[in-house]
């Protein structure tokens, strides 16, 4: 009971001191009274008793409703945790300058769209497909940028994604971006987590940072999806470089190898055009289907309208009763002259 009571509050609790006035209808009535020699003359009538009780109740409701309305009741806001289907998705988006180029490696012109624009369009569709997905957006170039922490506000996520085709910045520093993207996941366990890594290139990860990343991946264990927007002509993930096979020579291949060595579910999608990106995203979407607890925020709700509604209902009943009041005097005035007439003739 007290738990339920705690859900309600009043903006002006002082007005509640007037609440005892609501007992007035129990002792008084606003109806016109007709003095009669004996109320016992009226036959007992259950219907009238019911009506009387209803009117008393309506009076109580009217006054109580008005007083409550003055006190401005509200239902306190709360956060409700529910289970839905979805995943925590942390997006790590490359903002290096090359993202502004088309898949052909040129500046976009005419109907062509840049890699950033294509991924923006497709990711925007991805967000909001499922209601209970949580998204975080991180961008990186030389330094990582926290764009949006983990949230279920898809509007904000879409806005963040809409901003990723702004002109790109500098170079590609994958390691710090990955670290920040990982830090976006909360500490909740038992949730499906996905790290969606979108880039058009890779960079060497410092071996020291590699250990730290390994530890983070092992702790969080996200599903890692690498959407590699490959520019035509640039090396693929699998391509072995000619000559020495060092991270410096083939950063993509070595990043892939690093990801494979993490021991977490990992898929790389190599996309060479907008259609390939769309396919990759559709597949990611299909993979991430697990129950996820999500919180629903119920804002504080003003109940003043309900209180006034209650008062209005009570008052309406009382007004109806007032309109239904019998006029005990009108009838007599009509009848009397008729009675007098024959007597005058007789006299």
């Amino acid at each position: 009971m007290s738990k339920h009571l705690a859900l309600f509050g009043f903006a002006l609790p002082l007005a509640l001191w007037l609440l005892p006035l609501a007992l007035l209808p129990l002792v008084a009535t606003g109806r016109r009274r007709h003095a009669v020699p004996a109320v016992a003359a009226a036959p007992p009538d259950a219907l009238a008793r019911w009506i009387g009780a209803t009117l008393t109740l309506a009076g109580v409701a009217a006054i109580a409703g008005l007083v409550l309305g003055l006190a401005e009741p509200y239902r306190v806001g709360e956060r409700v945790t529910r289970i839905g289907i979805g995943a925590q998705v942390s997006m790590l988006i490359d903002r290096s300058g090359s993202m502004n180029e088309t898949f052909a490696g040129r500046q976009p012109s005419g109907a062509e769209e840049s890699k950033a624009a294509a991924s923006r369009r497709l990711l925007a569709g991805f967000v909001g497909e499922r209601e209970h997905d949580l998204f975080a957006v991180t961008a990186f170039s030389t330094a990582p940028m926290l764009v949006l922490p983990m949230t279920d506000r898809h509007e904000a996520v879409r806005a963040a994604i809409a901003a990723i085709d702004r002109p790109g910045l500098d170079y590609t520093n994958v390691a710090r971006g990955l670290a920040m993207a990982l830090s976006q996941f909360g500490t909740d366990s038992g949730i499906s987590r996905a790290l969606l890594f979108i880039s058009d290139g890779a960079a060497v990860i410092d071996p020291r940072v590699q250990d730290q990343l390994r530890a983070d991946f092992a702790k969080i264990r996200p599903n890692l999806y690498w959407l590699f927007l490959r520019t035509k002509g640039s090396p693929s993930i699998q391509d072995r470089p000619e000559g020495e096979d060092t991270p410096q020579a083939a950063p993509e291949r070595h990043l892939d190898l690093f990801f494979r060595s993490l021991g977490i579910p990992y898929r790389a999608f190599e996309a060479e055009g907008p259609q390939a990106v769309a396919d990759a995203i559709a597949r990611i979407e299909a993979l991430e289907r697990d129950p996820i607890p999500y919180t629903e925020v119920r804002p504080r709700r003003d109940l003043t309208g309900w209180a006034y509604g209650l008062a209005a209902l009570g008052l309406a009943v009382l007004v109806l009763a007032a309109l239904a009041e019998a006029d005990m005097s009108a009838r007599r005035r009509v009848e009397r002259p008729a009675e007098d007439a024959p007597l005058r003739r007789a006299a």
Binding site: R33, A35, A38, A40, I51, A324, E325, A326
Partner: peptide, 10 residues
């Protein structure tokens, strides 16, 4: 027809 509030004189 009508509602009437009767008040006993006694």
């Amino acid at each position: 027809w009508g509602l009437a509030e009767l008040d006993d004189l006694e």
